[in-house]
Lab assay of single mutants.
Amino acid sequence: AEEIWQQSVIGDYLARFKNDRVKALKAMEMTWNNMEKKEKLMWIKKAAED
C-alpha cells in the first residue's frame, strides 16, 4: 500500500524538492508515518484490488 501511495505522490514530492530524490523520499516516509489509519486504509484497499 505504501508503494502505491508513493508512486502516486512521488512527482509532487520531487517537484517540491527540486528533484532531490533523497529529501523527497525522506519527506514521503515521514508523511506516510504521520498519516491517519483511515487515510492509509484507502491505499491498502487500492493495493488489494491490484
Rank of each mutant, 00 (worst) to 15 (best):
K45Y: 07
E39A: 05
Q7A: 15
N19E: 06
A27Q: 06
I4H: 08
M30N: 12
E3L: 14
R21Q: 07
A1D: 03
K26Y: 08
A15Y: 08
K46F: 10
V9G: 01
E49A: 11
A24I: 04
M30I: 13
M35N: 01
D12P: 03
K40C: 03
I4D: 03
K23C: 07
Y13W: 04
T31E: 10
R21T: 08
R21E: 07
M35E: 00
K45R: 08
M28K: 00
A1Y: 04
M35W: 02
D12W: 10
W43Q: 02
A1L: 03
K45T: 14
N33F: 10
E29M: 09
K26V: 09
E49V: 08
Q6L: 07
R16I: 11
M35D: 01
E49N: 10
Y13R: 01
E49I: 09
E2R: 12
M30C: 08
S8E: 06
I10R: 04
E29Q: 13
D50R: 15
I10N: 03
I10L: 11
K18C: 12
R21N: 06
A24H: 00
M28G: 00
K23T: 09
K45P: 03
A24V: 05
G11M: 14
D50W: 08
K38E: 15
A47G: 04
F17G: 01
K18F: 13
K40F: 02
I44E: 15
M28C: 02
K37Y: 15
L41S: 06
A24D: 00
W43I: 02
I44N: 05
I4V: 10
S8L: 07
R16A: 10
A15I: 12
E29S: 12
E36D: 15
K46W: 07
A48E: 12
I44G: 07
A27C: 07
N33W: 07
T31S: 09
A1N: 03
A15H: 10
R16T: 07
E39H: 05
Y13D: 00
W43E: 02
K45N: 11
V22W: 09
V22Q: 13
D12E: 15
I10V: 06
W5C: 01
D20C: 04
L25W: 07
V9C: 05
A48G: 09
D50Q: 15
G11Q: 14
V9N: 05
I44R: 04
E49K: 11
D50L: 15
R16Q: 10
F17T: 03
S8F: 14
I10P: 00
R16M: 13
E49C: 11
W32M: 00
D50H: 14
E3S: 13
D20P: 00
I10F: 10
A48L: 14
A1C: 05
Q7T: 08
K38N: 14
A24W: 02
V22G: 10
D20R: 02
E36H: 06
I44H: 08
D12M: 10
D20I: 03
Q6A: 12
K37F: 15
V22N: 11
M35H: 01
K26G: 07
A27L: 05
W43H: 02
E49M: 13
A24M: 06
R16C: 10
A47Q: 05
K23P: 03
S8V: 09
L14M: 09
D20V: 03
T31F: 12
R21H: 11
M35F: 03
K38C: 15
E39P: 01
I44F: 10
F17L: 03
E29H: 10
A48T: 10
N33Q: 13
